[in-house]
């Protein structure tokens, strides 16, 4: 039987209150969002917070909206809300494609975007998506808030720029008219963590790639992205040959470990192949194919 270690519990009444509670209880306090990463970690006793600060009552952290030229997701937006959001699908197919393969419907009912980002699992699908779209996160503390690019957000596995007495409040993505996007994932079984996933966007203008982003998860790519592959594609026609060459560079950006999900060379192959498939579909979508 798995049971969390003894802990205390309090419900925050506002973001300011949650941050004040974090300050009051120190480093052994944790924010409890959807709980679908934290509670399993607590049951395994890998995490032993002494105080849980539940932010489920904070409506200010909910909702998906367009603000200027950005898509804004509150930290408490659930995976299901992302999956079913017409606003997100209108701008990027990749949201729906990625969410469809994140965990299972019941977990998606409860798990949140902010929670997944802060858990920062090295196999997190949203990390690949966030890196591909060059999203940002808003981190708040008692003296104000700051915006951090998702490509600088991760300090390492399970470590982020969110410090003690701070919380992630929003995730933001730039809107790119004319962009196509796609997500490709290989998993051992439905609902599992990725063996490898690739998320991309491509904007084709006048027959050449004007902008693109490539995100990879579960394969040890630094900051979940493949900048050399992106740089290679800019200004080039999205031909099969060029997309293959970019995908090869994405494979080179990966640095996977062999584990129960597969040997390293297999995962490197997946990084390349899944990037190619995603780029092919995204480029076609951008060209209205």
């Amino acid at each position: 039987m798995q049971t969390p270690a003894p802990t205390d519990y309090v419900r925050a009444t506002s973001v300011a209150n949650a941050i004040a509670l974090l300050e009051e209880h120190g480093e052994e306090a944790r924010i409890l969002a959807g709980g679908h990463s934290l509670l399993p970690m607590m049951k395994l006793r890998i995490a032993r917070p002494e105080m849980l600060i539940d932010i489920n009552d904070l409506d200010e952290l909910r909702g998906i909206r367009v603000e200027g030229d950005e898509l804004v997701l509150g930290a408490m937006v659930t995976h299901r809300e992302v999956l079913e959001s017409p606003i997100l699908s209108e701008h990027y197919a990749v949201f729906r494609e990625a969410e469809k393969v994140i965990a299972d419907p019941l977990v998606r009912n409860r798990g949140t975007v902010g929670g997944s980002m802060c858990q920062a699992d090295p196999s997190e699908d949203l990390s690949a998506l966030g890196a591909a779209l060059r999203g940002t996160v808003v981190i708040q503390n008692s003296s104000g808030s700051r915006t951090v690019p998702l490509r600088e957000f991760h300090e390492g596995p399970y470590e982020t720029k969110v410090g003690p007495a701070e919380m992630l409040t929003e995730v933001r993505f730039p809107i790119r008219p004319g962009a196509g996007s796609a997500y490709e994932k290989v998993e051992r079984r439905v609902g599992d963590w990725a063996v490898c996933s690739a998320g991309v966007f491509v904007t084709v203008k006048d027959g050449v790639v004007a902008d693109c982003g490539i995100g990879l998860t579960a394969v040890g790519a630094e900051h979940f992205c493949a900048p050399d592959a992106e740089a290679f594609l800019i200004g080039k026609a999205p031909t099969e040959e060029n997309l293959r060459a970019a995908a090869k560079l994405a494979g080179d950006a990966s640095d996977p470990s062999s584990d129960q999900r597969g040997p390293a060379d297999y995962k490197k192959h997946l990084a390349e192949e899944l990037t190619f498939r995603a780029l092919t579909r995204a480029a076609a979508a951008s060209q209205g194919a």
């Binding site: 039987m1 798995q2 519990y9 409890l32 709980g35 679908h36 509670l39 399993p40 049951k43 849980l52 539940d54 489920n56 299972d104 419907p105 019941l106 977990v107 009912n109 409860r110 609902g191």
Partner: peptide, 26 residues
């Protein structure tokens, strides 16, 4: 116990969830 099997599925506020991964306090 690990939010994999779904035997504990029930509804909270009309949403189906795995109740081994929700605190009673919540």
């Amino acid at each position: 116990d690990t939010s994999n099997c779904g035997a504990c599925t029930l509804w909270v506020d009309g949403e189906a969830v795995k109740s081994c991964t929700v605190l009673a306090a919540q």
